[in-house]
Amino acid sequence: MATTLPVKIEFSLPEGWQPAPPDEVGAPGVAFIALHSASREGFTANITIAGKMRDTIDLVAIGDESVQRLREAATVSVAHRTEVGTPEAPALTQTLRISTSLHGRLLDLVQSQVYLVMQDVHNPAEHAVIELVLTAKSTQIAQVEEDFKDFVRSLRPADSSAE
């Protein structure tokens, strides 16, 4: 079942990406998914957004949780991990190599994950962790990774004065 985000955000989708209903495309547990219409050769590259309130904001531990979840269904290795951002707005990026099967065929995927900490504007002591994920076949990643970077750069808290 699709979820909602604990904070309101705004973003821009790069050209060539189309939003889709998460439950209809097999992405339960995410609040948003966009599909890359030009990359349908056996797997459609996608961008997802999920998030939740967290008691702790240890982003490395959160990244490790993601790896463990994926390992329940696939072989996963962490290719790259970097803590970025500022002390006031920490973030973590990690790139995962995933080997799994889809419809009985071996599939090599790359997943770029970005974890952003966003402070609750109404209660600054509370924090949400927003998870932005690009998943693509290893042969597709070069054509979509710049789009993902543009997407991540476009993300911002929603204008609360518009409520």
Rank of each mutant, 00 (worst) to 15 (best):
M1W: 13
V7L: 05
K8M: 09
F11W: 06
L13E: 02
E15W: 08
G16E: 01
G16S: 04
W17L: 00
P19G: 01
P21Y: 03
G26C: 00
G29K: 02
A31Q: 03
A34S: 11
L35D: 05
L35W: 05
S39I: 12
G42W: 10
T44H: 14
A45S: 15
N46Y: 07
A50V: 12
G51S: 08
M53N: 14
D55S: 12
L59H: 04
L59A: 06
V60N: 14
G63H: 07
D64H: 03
Q68W: 10
R69E: 10
R69Q: 13
V78A: 09
A79F: 09
H80I: 15
E83I: 13
E83C: 10
G85E: 04
P87I: 01
T95G: 01
I98P: 02
T100F: 11
S101F: 13
L102W: 11
R105C: 11
R105S: 15
D108Y: 07
V110Y: 00
S112F: 08
S112M: 11
Q113C: 10
V114K: 00
L116P: 01
Q119M: 06
Q119P: 03
H122Q: 08
P124Y: 01
E126M: 10
H127D: 07
A128D: 03
V133C: 03
K137N: 10
A142V: 11
Q143L: 14
E146N: 14
D150E: 12
V152H: 02
R156Q: 12
P157N: 08
S161E: 15
S161N: 12
